[in-house]
Design a protein around this nucleic acid. Sequence first.
DNA 1: GCCAGAGTTTAATCGGAGATAGATTAGTGA
DNA 2: TCACTAATCTATCTCCGATTAAACTCTGGC
Lengths: 211, 211
Amino acid sequence: MPRKSPAAEPVTPHEDASAKSTRTRRRLLDAAATVLSRKGFAGTRLADIAEQAHVQAPAIYYYYPSREDLIEEVMYVGAAAMRTHLTAALEALPPSTTPAGRISAAVEAHLRHELEISAYSTAIIRNANQLPEAVSRRALAEVAAYNDVWRVLVAELAAAGELRADVDPAVGRMMVLGALNWAAEWWDPEGGPLDEVIRTAQSMVLHSLRP
Amino acid sequence: MPRKSPAAEPVTPHEDASAKSTRTRRRLLDAAATVLSRKGFAGTRLADIAEQAHVQAPAIYYYYPSREDLIEEVMYVGAAAMRTHLTAALEALPPSTTPAGRISAAVEAHLRHELEISAYSTAIIRNANQLPEAVSRRALAEVAAYNDVWRVLVAELAAAGELRADVDPAVGRMMVLGALNWAAEWWDPEGGPLDEVIRTAQSMVLHSLRP
DNA sequence: GCCAGAGTTTAATCGGAGATAGATTAGTGA
DNA sequence: TCACTAATCTATCTCCGATTAAACTCTGGC
């Protein structure tokens, strides 16, 4: 058994001696995200993760106490990054931005980040609802918080009188998020520039919500 | 070893003697769809399927040569049913129906069927892109055919001059299908009548596509 | 040049799950 | 009721994959 996992020792002994450790940890996380998105939770083998990360399988236990802990972190980190990214994008907007403008920015932030960290995104999208409770709990909480941000965006639009009367806010929000999430399943960098997808998405989303 | 699987003997010996066999087969298929949607491909245990279907695990081998064959059939049958349902709904429309009216009907058909056979739908949605090639081949072909039906619907709309210029037809179609597919992940019969979701969806879809 | 500990490896262990063998029971026609 | 087939069961085999044990290696500080 390894003496102590680096994760349990945040006080770095030699200031940057842990650089290697940190990098390997990240490699394992990325590898796990990739395998998880391609094979699903139960199909994710430690051997596959290890191969992706260029280590032997037991090395994983130096960094994570168990397979489930590693996967749990993939889900959480991916979900948290998504929310952080969206929040930052919104905060960067000038205060004068209209509700429609904010939604437009949110659409762009969602798509860019989703497709940039697509291994994490597809891992979350495909697996979130078929994981054991313990593995998905933190991630689902992040996803709920992410949804809340959108809830506010839609509410702001409604408050400005720009939400069509025949659109239920909750249903509308889930439809929009579904359209955006699904992009991870079909978008291919080869098939055309992301910017065009973003423009089309922004236009469709706003037209689907506003009078 | 069982003498012969009923599947291999389409000529029913006693005309309805196979009724029981047919029902068990269906129970197994439904059970497999349920487990598959909840646990994913690799997490789908024969024991879980068997329990859902009220048989012992080895009984499955009387009907299917292997676990993979059973799952393959779940995917294919679910995908094929989806396309059949949509096609039938479109053919039932009066010939005078406008392109927008046809899309509206397609939205309803998609949502109703998706949420009615939700075990099959979520099984397909969550697993289609993380299955071994051999298991998903037929299902993916059906999905492609299903997409083609929608491609035509959008083309008809465009031909009628009712597709906004800033909406790329392919991107628009995938966005719409994403919004609809995602409903299987969040819609809950307790949370309100399906009809209202359908009306909102129809309105959003048409407004997102038309000038 | 030597030591300590971080980081990683090879070699077991051990349980779980698909598949098979060989009964056993249910159903139907004579 | 008998005989035969359909349908299902119990017991078992076997392999795969997570985890653990026990080294080994490399690096920086002395």
